[in-house]
Design a protein around this nucleic acid. Structure first.
Lengths: 196, 196, 196, 196
DNA sequence: TATGAATGAGGGTTCATTCAT
DNA sequence: CATGAATGAACCCTCATTCAT
């Protein structure tokens, strides 16, 4: 009755353990022996569940991107005003990202490694869609006079996405709640640090 | 022509070669063999110049931090107005960072690795000074009514410093000049993306 | 239909599946997982039927040698003329060998592996009996003037037996029927390739 | 003066050691640790000389095939009479093969393994040329009435080549000299075992 | 200074086998 | 009978480093 949900539960647990290590040290810097140790088994035993270390990474990364893209697409449909869309993207990201700390760290630290492999081609594809969504909204905001007329959409995108994805790489902090970070971020993003 | 300048020039050249590789692939992901290949010698021969791979990293990292701190200290002395100080920090950083691409990449990608080693204790010290300078300026700005009264200095610092240091990790791009990036950054920083 | 015949039928079926793989890739190069996959079960489940991979090999190998020796002994009894005996050996081998493709491949490819193990000591014994039969016939043929007087029986045996056992290692071919191969073989064996 | 001939001498020595092991146990069944042990070094040290176990195999195999093909091509040019050409092939093979015991064993035992890899595509190419040469000579001999009119060239080729290449796999024997083996082979080949 | 050879620790992976359920 | 999880030994290979020449 309590037995084996779809991807075997044990497997899911192992992915979570691995993800924690990846989030802490990066994908490449984490050894399969460390993952196995964390699970209390021998390193070879991991290969009963996964056929390679990379396939663990794959699982984590693709789940993350699916989640992110779903959030982005929903945000685009949720409003017409670009500012509202962006605000929605940021708010949805906050929840998504905290569920995928490992993926974020992996992408930031080992992007070169992954993006060079055919197996991870979907990373590039997904990142392009994400970029396109940001740029669309930023340009629409600028053209409608909502955002500054001298805004460089591509440059702003790079900065904004990185800001947005950054806090996750900070070690799990108790200083700010996710909501505080999001609010701080949005204020910074829309209004800068200058007082009015 | 390429041969026998002062012995330290050869060394400097090797550090530069190593730095280029570190900037491109990260410190850990670069092997001493790759460095040696780039220099046209065998990997063992590098050890006539450096006693370890880490000492190359040390050289790169400490030169960077000396440079950065010098810029920050000068910025603090250069003006009284926090906004002017911060603007000066950003402008001086732009020049500094482009001279130290390797160091930046190393710090971003392999921070865990370095900061765990006693040898690199100075990294933490320097980062603390940098943080303190940012926070001082941000709080002074807030207290003087120059910056928003709800600004969280520590949170803003983290975001700002990361924004500032980020572009360097982008692959050498021809899309924007360093000055354009700095200007875009400053506008974003002070005024956000919203039109006034 | 496929299920629950006598328990030994399942076992026999598994041996056949394993044998097919052994014939194709050799004994050592075949993993128990591949065998289990072919049977549609998990690799651990094989151990309900066999106590080791080697015991599957044992079954295949000993069945083969029993069959071969039976044929050889019958051939010896079937005629007095050495040429007739040899012809009978070759003809009986043809049928025997096609029933034991796996065993042949295993013997040819992994002889070292098997013959080093006490468990397979019977392999050496059987091969010695086979050799003795050939040599007896060849020498009798030579002494009776039926075969060439300069024939080296041991050398001829090695060549003849290897020729005889060889075709099996060829990938299952549709080019020649077993009978054609046997006839070709016998002509080559007795008369060489030269026209008379 | 005595130092480093072209492929480094040390390297050559290691290839020879590896070849001996391959000849004895096959390529796959030989571990890099065994090779290193034979050389008195650690297994990792082998990778200073070769970039993989396979590249050692490559070296051995390609040297062998170059040698064989050279002998075959020379034999074809050396005479017009197919019987003379074949005799020359057999005689040249004898010398060639004894110099390349390892390659022979590897080809016989691990053909599947090698021939499946793109890196070893040249194996198939070379084997095709060898086959073509045999078949040409056998058919010319048959058409000219020199060989039996019912000779199946392809079948005979398979048998003959395998006979020819076989003795090498026999453990280094003192029973027959290479010349004795060749002579025995040729007699068997041309005239069969039957007395005239 | 540089080479060429080697070390030694550790990396990801494979595989026959065991065993509780 | 079969599953699912695990073992343990071995495998090929990588890499920073050392050192005699």
């Amino acid at each position: 009755m309590t037995q084996s949900k779809s991807p075997s539960e044990r497997r899911t647990h192992l992915v979570r353990l691995a993800g924690d290590l990846f989030a802490e040290k990066g994908f490449r810097a984490t050894t399969v022996r460390e993952i196995a140790d964390a699970a209390g088994i021998l390193s070879g035993s991991l290969y009963h569940h996964f056929d390679s270390k990379e396939s663990i990474g794959d699982e984590i990364l693709s789940a993350f991107l699916d989640d992110v893209l779903a959030g982005y697409r929903a945000a685009v449909l949720s409003a017409d005003d670009p500012r509202a869309v962006i605000e929605q993207i940021v708010r949805s990201s906050s929840a998504t990202l905290s569920r995928h700390r490992a993926a974020l760290t992996m992408l930031q630290r080992d992007w070169n490694y992954f993006s060079a492999q055919p197996r991870f081609a979907y990373l590039r594809t997904a990142m392009k869609e994400i970029e396109q969504i940001w740029i669309d909204q930023l340009e629409r905001g600028r053209e409608s006079g909502r955002f500054r007329s001298d805004l460089d959409a591509r440059l702003a995108y790079r900065l904004l996405r990185d800001i947005l994805w950054m806090p996750t790489s900070w070690r799990p902090s108790t200083t700010w709640s996710p909501d505080e970070i999001v609010d701080g971020l949005l204020r910074l993003l829309f209004d800068g640090i200058t007082a009015r």
